[in-house]
Simulated assay, not measured.
Amino acid sequence: MVSTSTTPYSNVQMATWLRGLLTIAWADGDFTTEEQTLITELVKEMGFQETDTVLFKAIHPEELVEGLGKDKATAENFLRTAVLVAIADGLYSPSESTILHDFCEALGIKIQALEALEHTLCDPESQILEQAHPHPDLLHPMKDWLDGMAIHDPRLARFICKLVPPQCPFERDVTLFGHKLVHIPPLCKLNPLYEQLVGLRFRALSYLADDCKEDISDYI
């Protein structure tokens, strides 16, 4: 069952929001076939059509401001989701950092917690885990800021449920001749902000089930 709950965001705002997140997702230049499929599903999940080709174009900071509007709460919630997209793979790259700073500057919002996230900067090609996982105390401001996001829009909630999987796809058992040799834990748990990703997904699911009375079985 699909809800008829009203949304606080217009179609223009949601399209702008989606383009901003995709711009972050494409920042590292690695856009696999699997990611293309996921993006197409996310576009449909938010009620748009694949023919809306403008959604698949990177957005400039000035366009972001024009599309989102001047409401600071809306801008800050967009930035929260942008950060989550940036660190979803456990790495925060310089290219992602640059785009986030440009977005913050254009929106006129200064996020102190982003300074802590700078300590996690890592070149994905270097694969230096020590850079990607600093002392946890450094990320407390970022964790508190991300946990402060409330869900009030069904389309955004569905987007989050689709973006953050219920189970890390990298978790698996390595077997040989039918015998398990080793269990590889979910690599996403190496993400220093893993709990924030999971927590946001839980709040999105709860909103859809409790407030919108939607069937969330497809997301579980």
Rank of each mutant, 00 (worst) to 15 (best):
Q13W: 09
T53A: 09
A86D: 03
L18N: 02
I128Q: 10
M149E: 08
H152L: 13
F31S: 07
A106G: 06
E41I: 11
M149K: 07
Y9M: 10
E105G: 03
K189V: 13
V12S: 13
A116G: 08
S126T: 13
I184W: 03
E105I: 10
G69P: 01
M14Q: 13
A88G: 13
L117Q: 00
D211C: 08
D147K: 15
A82P: 02
C168T: 02
T16W: 01
A209Q: 11
E62Y: 10
F103Y: 11
D144Q: 15
D71M: 11
E63M: 13
F48E: 01
D52G: 06
L208T: 04
L205Q: 02
Y219C: 06
D71K: 14
I160L: 03
M14H: 11
H179E: 15
E35T: 08
A150W: 09
H60N: 09
G20V: 05
T81E: 09
A86F: 00
P169G: 11
L38A: 09
I111E: 07
F48W: 05
H179C: 09
L190P: 01
M14I: 15
H152V: 15
R201M: 10
Y194T: 03
L197C: 06
H140V: 15
Q131W: 06
M149Y: 00
F202R: 12
N191T: 02
I111L: 15
W26R: 14
L91D: 10
A25Q: 10
L193G: 00
E45H: 08
V182H: 14
C122K: 05
S126M: 14
T51W: 06
F103K: 04
L146M: 03
P186D: 01
L176E: 12
S97C: 13
P61E: 01
L138E: 02
L156W: 07
L21I: 03
H133N: 14
I99N: 01
L200P: 00
V198L: 12
C188D: 06
A58W: 04
T33K: 10
